[in-house]
Amino acid sequence: MSINENDVILQVQDLKKHFMPHQGLLQSLGTKTKKVIKAVDGISFGIRRGEIFGLIGESGSGKTTTGKLVMKLIEPTSGKIVFNGEDVTITDRGRTKAYRRQVQMIFQDPYASMNPRFKIRDVLGEPLIIHKIEGDRLRHEEMIIKSLTEVKLNPPSDFMGRYPHMLSGGQRQRVATARTLILNPMMLVADEPVSMIDLSTRAEILHMMKDVQRDLGLTYLYITHDLSTARYFTDRIAVMYLGRIVEMGRADDVIDNPIHPYTRALIDAVPEPETGMVDIIKELPISGEIPSPANIPPGCRFHTRCPYAKPVCSEQTEPELSDVGNGHFHACRRWKEL
């Protein structure tokens, strides 16, 4: 399926999510921050119909919060979400429920998301009941079989009577995916945690997700901090840092020709299966860890860790995303000099 640049299914406009600091427990343990936590601090992007859009960045950069905003699991502090031409930023309960059928979340920890006492048939039947999908038992059974076929668990009858623990990690993930597909969503949001899942199983899962996406013409928002996977799996990526997007473009452009110093640092840090590294202490272009979103540095928020930072970077206003042509955006003032 070819992607039409102008056919945007999800548009996010200057979206923000600011959390009030925790009260109680943390304070009694001695934390005194009273500042708001700017988890997502003004991001805009559009995802095209049939596209796999990746969101990457370090831990704490605001990826999951963005995913939750898109899923409408939390309310934005400000900004706008337009889905399929409709402003869905604020919706009533009925519309929200319908929205969550169209935009489904894939849980990346299928252990946690499946009732161990349910057979696979019931795991898949449950969303049909929750969403009061019309049809009798037989019709529901057909839908279950169809979704198992879509994720290549063949023959479906072999799997329907099993319990989750009787499946391998890869198979369990297929069931979790089938569970979201059964409601015929238009878009899937997958938030991959820093995972213990091994590479072969992950490759298997990504293959399956890509096949499903192609077969059904779905759109994905794929959240990860693994650039290598993003490169293989996504069409476009947005790199987040401390609640903002600092670079965005076609996955190949961003990874082969990164512009923003933060993206460059991320790429440098990724290990490759090559020889000759064992006795080498890798030069890391940036040091330290991501600052607290309760204390965002002024100007370019990356300036405290940026190897190229000059006074202008902290003195002037925050750089906005700008296009270098071919839809490759970055937010770095000094990009021409790097």
Binding site: G169, L199, E204, R231
Partner: peptide, 23 residues
């Protein structure tokens, strides 16, 4: 051999990432 083929590379674009079927 198969484990290495399932390892995604960043600097070299691979068309397909293979995996080891089964568990």
């Amino acid at each position: 051999e198969k484990l290495l083929l399932a390892t995604p590379l960043l600097k070299k674009k691979v068309e397909t990432l293979s995996f080891i079927p089964g568990a």
